[in-house]
Amino acid sequence: MVTGTENHSPHRRNYAVMTLGWICVLLGLAILAGGVWLILLGGSWYYAPAGLGLMLTGLMLNWHRMDAVWIYGLTWLGTAIWAYWEVGTDWWAQLPRMLAPTLILILVLICIPALRRR
């Protein structure tokens, strides 16, 4: 994903960033909904807030706001702590927990040059 510009123009829309933003919104909504369902079934409380974090990240990306990085960084960190708490160093068990969130983290970080600082 190439952000394509060193120009931090606030008026310029970066469609790559917005695409990632929408993906994060949709995935975040799915995880938030499923997470609420899981809480109602008596299961883990991790997914609902993680989904919320991902969704907010997506919104911030759509607005080209640097908050996306901080929100997602926090979400990712929380995920890492939770995953280690749940399964420790069982790497096969870490795969579903950490692989995709880490890929998203990388993408979010790549977006930094296109984001607007406050």
Binding site: I31, G35, L41, G43, S44, Y47, A93, L95, P96, A100
Partner: peptide
């Protein structure tokens, strides 16, 4: 246990957690 569910992403693992709890 619920944490013994799996998947490739958090989403399919979440789905399996829901199935486990159901």
């Amino acid at each position: 246990e619920e944490k013994d569910t799996w998947g490739f992403t958090p989403i399919d693992q979440l789905w399996c957690r829901i199935k486990f709890r159901q």
